[in-house]
């Protein structure tokens, strides 16, 4: 009882502190007053400390199984293991909002403290973050308190949703929610730069860094979500184009576009306003995602999270869209103001000698493709909602996304192969002639696009000779090979320079960033191969087997041996035993009679080439109804995503640096380089 009141007290104090922080920051921003800026920051940090106190209180209530608190009763029971009881913190509506806020406070405090030397920028960013935090705190205090008490304390809780009772619960939601909340930080800095009329380049480095943090967290969250869906939901796939999945993908896509467009901004002083639009869109899309999850307005696998908070988030979304739209219209139009910094392009080689495709052109095309892809996904996601308003509700399925997304996907793969090879400002005039005369030379043995063409051609021939006839594979795999060739030759160029160069021990930040980005590109290419391979070559058999009978899928023969009955955390479990060579696969079904639900536990045998994936759908006497899948190359998706995140970590685990000057004309700094 006292614990709940303490928690509510923490939230109330946090609300007062962030509201005060917003006012202090506003004053600091308007007057450029350093002291009020410090007060605003300190109030924000104090608010965060109170939110941390509330979180610790909720955790104590959960672990202490304080069933007087409604949240604890609704999301745990005595049979739940200790880690999952702690994970119920973000498993329920109110707790997940508190967790969102906790991470917003942590990321926001660090970001604001690191930017405090820029008084107006930090003050306006503080204002935006405090306003966002205040919204969440109002909701937590007034509408959905995690510390609401029950009139009568029950002896046991209702328990966590059976689907969530899995190891994935410990990893997927924390990262995804962290990603969602972290998008608020670059948004706040972008808005602050617009409102405060920032000049110079260092706010770009700051915003980029925070966008990268949010993007990294979201990458991990999305991958873990796919991994979890694959391991738990039992339909043999990892991505169902569910509205909530789409909602998590869209801010990630927008930020991916931003991380590339910002390089044009850093290098050439262009695309400044567009970059801001992307950062702001990412945040708005993340709020839209939260709205879709909470409102239950669209049918989704995440329907367990539906709550009456939908209208609140819709209102917040409207306010955020209006405010950011107004600020963009007010301050965002002149390119020079928002990132061009009025710095004129000063080409060392006259522009007339350079023409044709350029690095910045590749970035622009990449941004157009990603923006169009995001718009197509947004349209598909919101179509049921929009069409329902005017008449019959229309719903699009995965085939819509696959058909619409395919050209963009191919275009992006092509750019991965070509873009890094293009010089800034475009190709010089004699480029094509040099390419013809010295095919393996321009601008060096390891810089030729012919390697990519060679890799694509060899892969295509290899696939055709190997008897592959599926068009998606014949188109994408050569593109993936070309992209790999491009990345690897960039590493080769780096290595050869390192061996030759006098300052070989020097490893600058830009080089780290460059090679980190290529590692991320390698990751994306491996993921792409995994996505296409698993989609095109997947095989499925639905069978009912008696003991001793076998089923063969994808060259693997599984023999059903029988079923076993047991219990798991006090719940009845039926397990089927299947023998595959020397291995045994044991898919099972767990019953939760009190909740009226039965959940399948899938058995997966995974190798780098394919996964054998077995779902026990039913048992009839001694017979077992099974769905058996052969899913090729799925492990490539997890491995590629790991490389992607590793690349970003390697490339960016340093202090942000300001780009000192424009790149000289024709410099060959690659995608990752600033």
């Amino acid at each position: 009882m006292l614990l709940a009141e303490l928690g509510s007290g923490f939230l109330l104090a946090a609300l007062a502190l962030v509201a005060f922080s917003a006012l202090a920051a506003l004053r600091a921003g308007r007057r450029g007053d350093r002291r009020w800026g410090q007060v605003g920051l300190r109030a924000f940090v104090a608010g965060f400390v109170c939110v941390a106190g509330a979180s610790a209180t909720l955790l104590a209530a959960l672990l202490g199984r304080d069933f007087a608190v409604a949240f604890v009763t609704d999301h745990t029971d005595r049979s739940l293991s200790l880690p999952l009881t702690a994970a119920a913190f973000y498993g329920g509506q109110e707790g997940s909002l508190l967790y969102w806020l906790l991470l917003l406070g942590a990321c926001g405090s660090v970001a604001l403290a690191s930017a405090r030397h820029r008084v107006r920028l930090a003050a306006y960013a503080n204002l935006v973050l405090a306003a966002v935090a205040a919204f969440f705190l109002i909701v937590l205090v007034a509408v959905a308190s995690p510390f609401a008490l029950l009139p009568v304390t029950p002896p046991d809780g209702v328990g966590l949703n059976p689907v969530l009772r899995d190891g994935g619960m410990l990893v997927h939601p924390p990262f995804l929610l962290a990603g969602y909340s972290a998008f608020a930080v670059p948004f706040a800095f972008a808005m602050a730069a617009l409102v405060g009329g920032e000049e110079g380049n260092d706010w770009i480095a700051l915003t980029r860094r925070y966008a990268l943090v949010a993007w990294g967290l979201q990458s991990v969250g999305l991958t873990l979500g796919m991994w979890w869906a694959y391991h738990v939901l039992g339909w043999g796939g990892y991505w169902g184009w569910d509205p909530v999945e789409n909602a998590a993908l869209m801010p990630w896509l927008a930020t991916t576009a931003y991380l590339h467009s910002v390089q044009v901004q850093e290098r050439r002083g262009g695309l400044g306003s567009w970059s801001l639009v992307l950062v702001i869109s990412a945040f708005l899309l993340s709020i839209l995602g939260t709205f879709i999850v909470r409102s239950g307005i669209l049918p989704s696998v995440h329907s367990f999270a539906v709550s009456p908070l939908g209208p609140w988030f819709f209102g917040f979304l409207l306010v955020a869209v209006t405010a950011s739209g107004a600020v963009l219209a007010w301050r965002g139009t002149p390119e020079a103001r928002s990132g061009g910094d009025g710095r004129p392009a000063a080409p060392a080689v006259p522009e007339r000698e350079r023409s044709g495709p350029s690095r910045e052109g590749a970035f622009v095309l990449q941004n157009v493709l990603i923006a169009a892809l995001t718009a197509a996904i947004l349209w598909g996601t919101l179509l049921p909602l929009l069409s329902g308003m005017v008449g019959r509700e229309l719903v699009v399925g995965p085939s819509y996304y696959q058909r619409v997304g395919a050209p963009f996907f191919l275009g992006l793969l092509g750019l991965l192969a070509v873009g890094p090879l293009l010089p800034w400002r475009g190709l010089s005039r004699g480029w094509s002639r040099r390419l013809l005369v010295h095919p393996l030379q321009p601008p060096g043995f390891l810089g030729s696009p012919l390697w990519a063409v060679l890799a694509a051609g060899l892969t295509l021939v290899g696939l055709v000779v190997g008897g592959v006839h599926q068009l998606p594979v014949l188109v994408t795999f050569p593109l993936v090979a070309a992209g790999l060739a491009t990345c690897l030759q960039e590493y080769g160029r780096g290595a050869s320079r390192w061996l030759r160069g006098p300052g070989r021990a020097r490893s600058s930040t830009s080089q780290r960033r460059r090679y980190g980005a290529y590692l991320a590109h390698l990751g994306v290419l491996i993921v792409a191969a995994g996505l296409i391979g698993s989609h095109v070559w997947q095989q499925e058999r639905q069978v009912i087997l008696q003991p001793g009978q076998s089923v063969t899928v994808g060259g693997h023969t599984l023999t059903y041996e029988g079923t076993l009955s047991g219990s798991r955390d006090g719940h009845p479990v039926t397990t089927a035993r299947l023998r595959m060579g020397a291995e045994t696969l044991e898919p099972s079904r767990v019953s939760y009679p009190s909740l009226g639900q039965t959940v399948s536990r899938i058995a997966i045998r995974s190798t780098p080439f394919d996964d054998v994936y077995v779902v026990l759908t039913d048992t009839r006497g001694r017979a077992a109804a099974l769905n058996v899948f052969d899913n090729p190359l799925v492990s490539w998706i997890w491995a590629g995503a790991g490389l992607l995140v590793l690349g970003v970590l390697i490339g960016n685990l340093t202090r942000p640096e300001v780009v000192p000057e424009l790149a000289p004309a024709g410099s060959r700094a690659p995608v990752g380089a600033r």
């Binding site: 009141e5 007290g9 923490f10 109330l12 002291r35 009020w36 109030a43």
Partner: peptide, 30 residues
């Protein structure tokens, strides 16, 4: 009790939060 806790927390937070302003006043007096 909730309000009491909240008020106590705000009292506790006030000195460090307002310190940049208080320090200026102290310096002016000094």
């Amino acid at each position: 009790m909730t309000w009491v806790f909240a008020a106590l927390l705000l009292l506790l937070a006030a000195p460090p939060v307002l310190w940049p302003l208080l320090a200026r006043r102290e310096r002016r007096r000094g």
